[in-house]
Design a protein around this nucleic acid. Sequence first.
DNA 1: TCCAATATGATAGTATTACTATTCATTCAC
DNA 2: GTGAATGAATAGTAATACTATCATATTGGA
Lengths: 226, 226
Amino acid sequence: MQRLMQVNVQVTEPVYLKDPLTTELGRRIIEHSVRMIDELGLETFTFGKLASSLGTAESSIYRYFENKHRLLIYLVGWYWSWREYKLVFDTANIADGSMRLEKAIRSITEPVTEKGNFAYLDLRSLYRIAVSESGKAYMTKEVDGEHKEGCFSSFKRLCDRLRDAIVDVRADHPYPALMASNVVDGSMVQRFFAEHIPSLSEKNARSKIPELFVDLVFASINAPAR
Amino acid sequence: MQRLMQVNVQVTEPVYLKDPLTTELGRRIIEHSVRMIDELGLETFTFGKLASSLGTAESSIYRYFENKHRLLIYLVGWYWSWREYKLVFDTANIADGSMRLEKAIRSITEPVTEKGNFAYLDLRSLYRIAVSESGKAYMTKEVDGEHKEGCFSSFKRLCDRLRDAIVDVRADHPYPALMASNVVDGSMVQRFFAEHIPSLSEKNARSKIPELFVDLVFASINAPAR
DNA sequence: TCCAATATGATAGTATTACTATTCATTCAC
DNA sequence: GTGAATGAATAGTAATACTATCATATTGGA
């Protein structure tokens, strides 16, 4: 599995200056930055603190990533790629479209509870970063240029797969793409709300999020034309 | 209307150090910061640039707002308060629950096209800020403390009103609060996607967003228990 | 084995940002 | 007219986000 992940989970776009997975320092940058962003939050995290935690110089880090924002894009891209990998894995060999769709929604909206078997990255930390910080990867003035560069392609691939699974169940669904991106993004937002502003969702929403999104998607599929 | 707005749209929580609406400079801070954040994006916008645009000193601005983040919370709070005001206005005197709910969803998810009649604030700029930057108001490590302070109360009030409108139509809806916050937040995210990463939603999604969210909510209302 | 990349470390330096503090002039309410 | 509040101007600090340079260690290939 470790090997398979390395192939699948790689961020293909050149969001980095030098591929961090090819060197020891690079991998340590990933490992430490994930832990530190999770602990400090993106705003408080700086390359200076990262360098000091690594026992190296700031300039060494700038050899790998142009800036903090690019590093965030890289990490978030990694996360979505991992989700996509997991989705493919979870839905393989399910012939029935409805069952496959339900499994897909659950796969995407489930919280991450396993540490994962990446040597240099704790998947649970990466998940928490994705919940709290992933929106900041694209909610900027540079979004159009970065989109053209392909910085968000792993997010898009995941949404596309879910959209296709919806269309497989109901070919004339009136808004499958919106539905898909709403499930992918909305499930993260709802996780955040459930954790920090719980009155915005149901009691015990944390454990019910996959269930509720499954219901929502199937409601939209089964709805008669208005 | 202007008077009514001033009463309704006020941010009641003390997110400011000194109420900017009480002085000329304060109002100019609001006016210029809205225009500048819209143009520059939150990251590039600084109190230094704002001061220079106002022809005043940075220190004067710090008398009103502790920092940029507090100013953002204030502006976003203003936006949601305005949406709430508009919602109440739009849905007044609609007796039928379903009609009221449909109108509520349309009111909340409609884009803002009018300049508004605030003397010192362009509503369309504020809307664009809300679409692109509102998530950053709460997606921070300080969210729990700020939530306790009441910084997000206007957002919550709006969600609560929509949730109540849903419950009015179907008292045993299984997840009205999640549905409501998903419509309020999701409609903004989908606006952003439609504008910047259009392949994530339908073609021409921009004009159809209210329609699609109406469909989605009513689908969830009419769905049989699973 | 030795040459040539490649990788890192160390140091230094710049521009900008996010604040804080202090002083002084103005104005406005009582 | 006096005192409190308001704002302008200036100065300064600490941190951040970079960029540049040079020395050195490692390594992989001819």
